[in-house]
Design a protein around this nucleic acid. Structure first.
Length: 821
RNA sequence: GGGCCCGUAGUCUAGUGGUUAUGACGCCACCCUUACAAGGUGGAGGUCGGGUGUUCGAUUCACCCUGGGCCCACCA
């Protein structure tokens, strides 16, 4: 077989990707008796293009998959896409330049489904390009019938278990997207705002001053509080008496021209009636534990709902009735600002307050607000009917379950613990959106009962389908229009994938491994664990491996808005998929990596070196017969001993999911020990068999064959394309497997000679000294010398090799000495 | 404010309670050696973020400080 002079990754990578897919190299065999290793592959959200972070973490998971497959496992390695929910709606709106709100639900869903068909295909191609060894026939999308059915069944089971419940409750909503959103869908944004100091009249005739960033919620004010043990000041301002905390007085006395009349305690004015400006609503001034004298004016007002703190206030004072002022669109539904949203109402209320002489000061502040991560809109808290999964009572159970997972790296478990401990709300699973899995239920029009879909009819769409009748006899129903939160479905990927093979379901679930990146521990990992625990009382997987993030060259998160996005497609085009994977393998599991384009050169160079070393090897293996010679030369045994160590260490590293260690060890062994030393040593025996004897050549050939094959196999999980190409070019005709990726993982050679390693090591030391001597004397490495060595007798079996590789005319016994000729 | 992770040469990175701190890119010098100049050999480059402590000995362990990242909470 003629081997091309240069390696062409573009052609070769495509060729083998096609071959693997066509020959179903990575096919899961449900009938096989081999032990199953199952991977709960993350279904990426279809978002147009695979990004660099994907190629980073999916490569890392693929290293493990390929290793396990070669170890002899029957690999269950599916691939799915997550393509419903808000993210998908946004994508379709952008791609098709439409607005979901302005279309009929039916048309929008239809558009989503048809558009996704094309997008999904293009998106999947990206993942195939990096050489993922998934069984692409095991495929699901979280919006298909199979997933809808499982998701709806899950809901029905949880409802029957009294875990799913519907309640009118304050929930975070996005006024822009018109939907409820979960805790995890929000992010922080630093904004400039004003802390507004507002005057309200007390029944005594004095005025209290309260401070707020949400003045527009005045019509929804449900409490004004202070600290009963705090010190406040009655101060004269023109003809009025103002009451603020002592700290506030000290801060503002000059600016506001206040004259202190007396100091009082908060309790002196508790229970007095306050009249609010504009609305003239009357409230009782109360004590509250959260009112602190040092912030603002020391007097707090609470609304429905200014934020979490207002929710908590109402929890502390259950006797107070909330005033629901907003609907899902974020607009006021009552009061003087009816029809306006928060921004509009705020502008207007501030003007009105000013006109009423009630606005004392607008203090500029910077504060952090919660915004919807998908659109950047400030979130609001609104009370609406939503479906929840009850789980706050199970925090301890989840903590225990989390601890039972084998975390790699171990410390990542703290992120889950931290999250569980901080949970405050049950899981809100309803979304007022369109493209998602529908709730499988209706409400009876006459008695209001919840009517669940029949399990045998799943999946259902309550807007299209109808139940037979209600228990009360009524045949009129109101369908639930809401859809399930996308995580309610994607949290079932282990069950979704496993149930594609019902006969071996029990062997697939719980899965062996969940690989994912660290940013979604708190939702995807946590939610999946929750579902598995709620339904089956078990963990969904045994092991968890957590990948880091690919960051930009400066170590910052990549984002379109920052313009620092690096496209993996471009990098693969410029270098190769193997180079990109080689880079992904150079970072420890869990560690973030800032991407430096020059690092792809390392992978490229490694490929070139591997190619050239193979080219050399095959030149000398033309007439090779796979038969072990009776006696191996000492140096050949030496390299096999070194190889054994690498095989042992690599296997162990891989078993601990430390692929980066395997990669580094093999890389070093190959380049240094194998190429720079071993290949140079055996050249003479291979080229000059007439002088050195055929036995020496056969020994070298045998060793060369097996060590190169082992190196290829050890590296094949990391760089699958070039290793396959080299395997196919030569090794395949001697080996039984039609792909290196389903060949056996290398095992150690049986070599018992203990002295050999020391002899070889001493040999290398002498060789290094000779090379140094030649370089320092500016001689070419082939320059001939006379060599004197201290242990000539010990090295008697390798003297011919030593002579050849050092170009020594003669080797003498004595103190180490090198002389040029 | 809380949790977790990280800080090692110009850049990226390995690593360990103990001789001279690993490798790669880049840099310098030499070598066209029958696989490979996209190579080989040799070299320069580091107060292992700063401080304190534990120890015979700390880059490694503990504490504090500082810078960065991610997650969470958050001030009316």
């Amino acid at each position: 077989m003629k081997i091309p002079k240069n390696y062409n990754p573009k052609e070769v990578e495509q060729k083998w990707q096609n071959y693997w897919e066509k020959n179903k190299i990575y096919k899961f065999d449900p009938k096989s008796k081999k032990k199953i290793y199952s991977i709960d592959t993350p279904p990426p959200t279809v978002s147009g293009k695979m990004h660099l972070g994907h190629s980073f973490s999916y490569s890392q998971m693929d290293f493990i998959a390929r290793f396990k497959r070669m170890q002899g496992y029957n690999l269950f390695y599916p691939f799915g896409t997550d393509d419903n929910g808000l993210a998908t709606e946004r994508l379709i709106e952008k791609e098709k330049k439409v607005k979901a709100k302005e279309m009929s639900r039916k048309d929008f869903i239809k558009l989503c489904l048809t558009t996704l068909k094309t997008l999904r295909k293009e998106y999947l191609r990206d993942f195939k390009l990096i050489g993922l060894s998934c069984d692409w026939d095991i495929f699901y999308t979280t919006i298909n019938d199979h997933c809808r059915k499982i998701s709806q069944k899950s809901f029905i089971d949880l409802y029957k278990d009294k875990r799913a419940y519907r309640i009118k409750s304050p929930i975070t909503i996005c006024p822009h997207c018109n939907t409820a959103i979960a805790q995890v869908e929000t992010e922080d944004k630093d904004k400039e705002s004003t802390l507004n100091y507002i005057k309200a009249k007390l029944e005594t005739g004095d005025y209290i001053i309260y401070a707020t960033t949400r003045p527009e919620l005045l019509p929804a004010c449900v409490g004004i509080t202070l600290d009963k043990n705090g010190t406040y000041v009655r101060a004269k301002k023109d003809n009025e008496i103002w009451i603020i905390s002592k700290e506030a007085f000290d801060r503002f006395k000059d600016e506001w021209k206040l004259v202190k009349k007396e100091e009082i305690k908060g309790k002196d004015i508790v229970n007095k009636i306050v009249t609010l400006p504009i609305t003239n609503a009357k409230l009782t001034l109360l004590h509250d534990t959260e009112a602190k004298t040092e912030y603002g004016s020391g007097i707090v007002y609470w609304c429905t709902y200014g934020g979490v703190e207002c929710l908590e206030y109402l929890e502390r004072h259950p006797e107070i009735e909330p005033i629901h002022i907003m609907d899902l669109s974020g607009k006021h539904i009552l009061g003087p600002y009816k029809g306006l949203n928060s921004t509009e109402a705020r502008k207007k209320v501030l003007k009105d307050l000013k006109d009423n002489n009630a606005l004392v000061l607008m203090e500029k502040i910077k504060h952090t607000v919660n915004v919807h991560e998908r659109c950047g809109t400030d979130i609001e808290y609104v009370s609406t009917e939503q479906w929840f999964i009850k789980y706050l009572d199970l925090k301890n159970k989840f903590l225990k379950a989390g601890g039972k997972l084998n975390w790699h790296p171990d410390y990542m478990k703290h992120r889950l613990y931290n999250w569980i401990k901080g949970l405050k709300w049950d899981w809100c699973i309803s979304r007022q959106r369109f493209f998602g899995v529908p709730f499988p239920l209706w409400y009876c029009k006459s008695c209001g009962e919840v009517i669940l879909a029949d399990e045998k009819d799943l999946p259902v769409d309550p807007l299209k389908n109808k139940p037979k009748k209600c228990k009360c006899g009524s045949k009129e129903f109101i369908p639930e229009k809401d859809v399930l939160d996308t995580w309610a479905t994607s949290s079932m990927t282990p069950q979704i994938a496993a149930s594609l093979f019902p006969k071996v379901y029990d062997k697939l679930y719980p899965m062996s491994l969940r690989p994912q990146a660290h940013d979604i521990i708190t939702f995807w990992l946590f939610n999946t664990m929750v579902k598995s625990q709620l339904h089956n009382n078990i963990n969904p997987w045994k092991d968890v491996v957590i990948s880091g993030w690919a960051l930009d060259p400066k170590g910052k998160k990549m984002s379109k808005s920052k313009g620092n996005v690096i496209e993996p497609q471009e990098m693969m085009g410029k270098y190769s998929a193997d180079s990109l994977r080689f880079w992904a393998a150079s970072t420890k599991l869990g560690e973030d990596s800032s991407f430096q384009e020059k690092e792809l050169i390392s992978g490229q160079k490694f490929s070139t070196k591997l190619w050239n070393a193979s080219k050399f090897s095959f030149m000398h293996l033309k007439e090779y017969k796979p038969k072990k010679p009776k006696n191996l030369e000492t140096i050949d045994k030496w390299i096999l001993i070194k190889l054994n160590k690498i095989i042992k260490d690599s296997t162990k590293s891989f078993e601990n999911y430390e692929y980066s260690k395997t990669k580094a060890d093999v890389e070093n062994f190959f380049w240094n020990t194998f190429c720079d030393h071993y290949l140079e040593i055996i050249k003479d025996r291979l080229y000059n068999a007439d002088k050195r004897g055929i036995k020496g050549k056969k020994s070298a050939q045998f060793t060369l064959y097996h060590s190169l094959l082992a190196i290829l196999k050890l590296m094949s999980p990391i760089i699958p394309h070039i290793t396959e190409e080299i395997y196919q070019l030569y090794f395949k005709k001697h080996e039984k497997q039609k792909s290196i990726h389903i060949s056996e993982w290398p095992t150690q050679f049986k070599i018992v000679d203990k002295k050999t390693e020391r002899i070889g090591d001493e040999f290398i030391q002498i060789l290094n000294k000779v090379r140094k001597f030649k370089t320092q004397n500016k001689l070419p490495l082939k320059h001939e010398i006379t060599l004197t060595i201290p242990n000539k007798n010990k090295l008697k079996d390798v003297l011919e090799d030593l002579k050849a590789v050092t170009k020594a005319k003669e080797i003498k016994q004595g103190k180490l000495n090198i002389k040029k000729l």
